[in-house]
Design a protein around this nucleic acid. Structure first.
Length: 477
DNA sequence: ATGTGC
């Protein structure tokens, strides 16, 4: 495999063999060393070989091996000759991140951190198969997946100012519950308002550093301020939708004449009946995930108020932004100086629309959209802003997190005999996890250094650093 | 990621 470094942060794999476009990796030399190049870049080359791919197959610096498509991958497909693929979105449809800012400083909250972690864990259902907060009739679940955040608002969760601070206003409009299987509906009906497991978490943090004061002001962030960060997705509902459409497309793809380099890349033409049905079902899962994060934030607000014994006004919770990092969307981009509609797949990648983009709330017209990059539970998370360069190079996309360097299994092995909870507490971070193995799987060493990942997207210009958050209390699934 | 897997 030929790998050509084109500047400090970009590497190209030239178009050869079955590739329809070249591939590009955004990475530093250090990250290139850490990535398992053969298996992961093979996946990127496979994506570059899919029909109708436009521009380049791209990998962000948090790239690692995934199902079919690499995680940390971005690929856009022509609306007529291109494909849509569940593996290009991922199992957790609209896995994403939401950040809220509070009217508190660390010194006001530090004495209560242990109580807060215990209270959050008690009231936020988390772990594999967690259910509980909202039990829905089939009719109401249909409303949730059709409407997303507006449904949550109609039920009293959150404030109506929240939608402008959510990607897509928290609702993909093409969602159609008619394309969602009974099984997926059944798995989703008791899971709204639950955190899930794995790397999903809720984190109390502090604004540690501001890099761009003007953007930070627009985003509503100030130094020393306490924040709340939520990372979760569409739970069993999205997982089942992915399963359903992988099975359907695996069966149908050969009849459509598409030759797959890897069966995990099962896909169908964007405009085919199956492709469109997947898009509508995926949108349902996306809306579920947005409603889920909306409800979880509201629940956290209640827990914080009660535990600290303060009013909503004194807590002063307000949305910074909510992004998804596993999604496919129809978007218009300028390609070779020509405006074109394409189906952008972001899998473990975040939208990074720059200043002036019509799809953004007026508040973000000068700054570009807020981008939320969670790191591992002991290090840091970052807030970035979208840029014009992202619009030109990456279909308005950037990285989504630190990215694993150790498999879950390897992490468990490395954590044997250690108390990670105590290790974290020594660092000033109170952590509680629902699952037995979760602390081990999610330990800081299992991830790349998020700072190095963020420095790549900042250095290459596809995003801009705005603020760094330092975790002080975390609940894990 | 997931009513966790060959």
């Amino acid at each position: 495999m030929e790998l050509i470094q084109t500047d400090a942060y970009t590497w190209e794999i030239p178009q050869t063999g079955d590739m329809n476009v070249p591939a590009r990796i955004y990475a530093s030399a250090g990250i290139m060393e850490a990535v398992k190049k053969e298996e992961t870049f093979r996946q990127l080359i496979n994506v570059a070989s899919l029909p109708g791919i436009v521009g380049r197959a791209m990998a962000m610096p948090d790239i690692h091996w995934g199902y079919g498509f690499p995680i940390g991958g971005v690929a856009a497909f022509d609306m007529d000759s291109g494909v849509i693929s569940p593996g290009g979105v991922g199992y957790d449809i609209n896995c994403g991140v939401r950040l809220a800012a509070l009217n508190l400083e660390e010194k006001e909250i530090r004495p209560h951190l242990e109580d807060l972690v215990v209270a959050l864990q008690k009231h936020i259902p988390s772990g594999v198969g967690s259910t509980g907060t909202v039990k829905l009739s089939l009719k109401d679940l249909k409303k949730v997946i059709k409407q997303g955040i507006p449904w949550a608002l109609s039920q009293g969760y959150g404030r109506d100012t929240d939608t402008g601070r959510t990607e897509e206003g928290g609702c993909m409009k093409n969602a159609d519950p008619g394309d969602v299987s009974d099984r997926a509906m059944d798995r989703g009906k008791n899971q709204l308002g639950t955190l899930g497991s794995g790397n999903h978490f809720m984190e109390i943090g502090v604004v540690d550093t501001i890099y761009d004061p003007a953007a930070a002001r627009v985003f509503g962030l100030a130094e020393k301020q306490v924040t709340l960060l939520i990372h979760t997705g569409s739970r069993g509902l999205g997982h089942q939708i992915c399963d359903d459409f992988l099975a359907l497309m695996t069966k149908k793809v050969h009849k459509s004449g598409i030759a797959l380099p890897d069966r995990q890349l099962a896909c169908m033409p964007v405009q085919s009946a199956e492709g469109q049905a997947y898009y509508r079902a995926m949108a349902c899962a996306a809306n579920f995930a947005w409603a889920n994060r909306q409800i979880l934030l509201h629940m956290a607000e209640t827990v914080l108020m009660h535990t600290l014994g303060i009013s909503p006004r004194d807590l002063g919770m307000r949305m910074v932004y909510d992004v998804c990092h596993n999604i496919a969307k129809t978007e218009t981009h300028v390609i070779d100086k020509e405006k074109r509609k394409v189906c952008v797949h972001r899998k473990g990648a975040t939208r990074a629309f720059g200043p002036g983009h019509a799809g953004l709330d007026p508040a973000f017209q000068d700054t570009g959209q807020p981008i939320l990059i969670p790191g591992d539970m002991g290090t840091a998370s970052y807030v970035l802003a979208g840029t014009q360069k992202a619009m030109e190079e990456t279909f308005g996309s950037t990285c989504h997190g630190a990215g694993r360097v150790m498999s879950r299994k390897a992490a468990k092995k490395a954590a044997k005999g250690r108390s990670l909870q105590q290790e974290m507490e020594k660092k000033g971070v109170f952590v509680r996890a629902a699952g037995r193995g979760t602390m081990a799987e999610e330990m800081p060493e299992a991830y790349k250094d998020v700072t190095e990942v963020v420095n790549v997207v900042h250095g290459s210009g596809i995003s801009k650093k705005v603020a760094k958050l330092r975790p002080i209390a975390v609940i894990k699934g």
